[in-house]
Simulated scan of single mutants.
Amino acid sequence: MTDREHLWLRLAVDLVILTVRDGQLQVLVIERANDPYQGRMALPGGFLRAGEDLRQAAERELVEETSLDGAVLHLEQLATYGAPDRDPRGRVVSVAYLAIAPDLPIPTAGSDASRACWAPVEDVRDDLAFDHNQILRDAVERARTRLEFTTLATVFCGPTFTVGDLRHVYEVVWDVTLDPRNFSRKVVQTPGFIEPTGTRRIPPTGRPAALYRRGSAEALHPPILRASPGTDG
């Protein structure tokens, strides 16, 4: 094959589904039932079929391998991955999709997956098959950026929440410890981010905490940016 000949390749989709469970940022992973990488953990995904568009393929693979309904998730294209050696079966280009959602159910394995589960990102981010470590890293960075510029974090807090609850989401996704007073000041002063309910949560011990609900804004102006290394968050 010369450099000027057309390249024949296969097109695939991979999915990064992130959620906050048990106080951790977790990702949906499967255990591969077939070669290549049989027995290794990987992101859900598979090859595009005739007559499918990319979104349809992503939804189908998610249902087949994990039983989760991609039609109800906000799937967004993350990036395209096409390194020549990314798949030992041949030249495969993959379009990766990302979804970030709360309260997702326990998955059930199917298709060419022998197991499907939620796993802490910290536990699997260096051990996935193919180039899925890189895809996961890119997805986590996208999620972290979304928290800087949008009100996404409130989705994980329930109908009412304290500023401490909201801070915990940021700490989990960003993998940092934030200064409570500094964070509270930024959140309260950001227009449309949160609204007071006029009620308080009274814990068994300690001081009552004011309860808030999600505000009307979807984008944060100004954004709540991650602190640079060596600065106070």
Rank of each mutant, 00 (worst) to 15 (best):
D14E: 05
D175R: 07
D123C: 14
A209C: 00
R226K: 14
E218M: 07
R115L: 10
L147S: 04
R32V: 02
M41Y: 04
N133F: 13
L11T: 13
D53F: 01
R91L: 10
R201S: 01
G230W: 09
L147T: 06
A113E: 12
T66R: 00
L147C: 02
R213C: 02
V188S: 15
E122D: 13
I17G: 04
A109I: 08
R167C: 03
F183Y: 04
E65P: 13
Y212N: 03
L48T: 15
D35N: 10
Q77W: 10
P102M: 00
R40H: 10
I135F: 09
L152R: 03
G110C: 12
G46T: 09
H132V: 12
A129M: 04
R89A: 02
N182D: 09
I224W: 15
V20F: 00
D131C: 12
P223T: 05
R144H: 06
E122Q: 12
H168P: 01
N133S: 10
G198W: 01
S67Q: 12
G70A: 14
S94V: 11
D131G: 06
L166N: 03
Q134D: 06
A12K: 09
D22L: 14
F149T: 06
L104K: 11
R125H: 00
P203W: 02
H132K: 01
G39D: 06
A209S: 02
D112R: 08
S114L: 11
V172E: 03
P88K: 07
Q38Y: 00
M1C: 10
R213Q: 01
P36G: 08
S216I: 01
V155Q: 06
N133C: 13
E64Q: 15
E5M: 10
L9Q: 09
D22P: 06
P204T: 09
T160P: 08
T2K: 11
S111P: 11
F130L: 03
D35F: 11
T66N: 11
P191W: 14
K186Y: 06
A99M: 12
L68P: 13
D126W: 05
V27M: 00
T231L: 03
F156M: 06
E65S: 12
L43D: 06
V176I: 07
L48E: 15
R167T: 05
V121H: 05
G230L: 03
F149S: 01
R55V: 13
A153I: 05
G198Y: 04
I202Y: 14
R213D: 03
P159H: 05
S184N: 15
L128H: 00
T151E: 05
D69G: 05
V172A: 03
T231A: 03
R181E: 10
G158Q: 01
D103T: 03
Y170D: 02
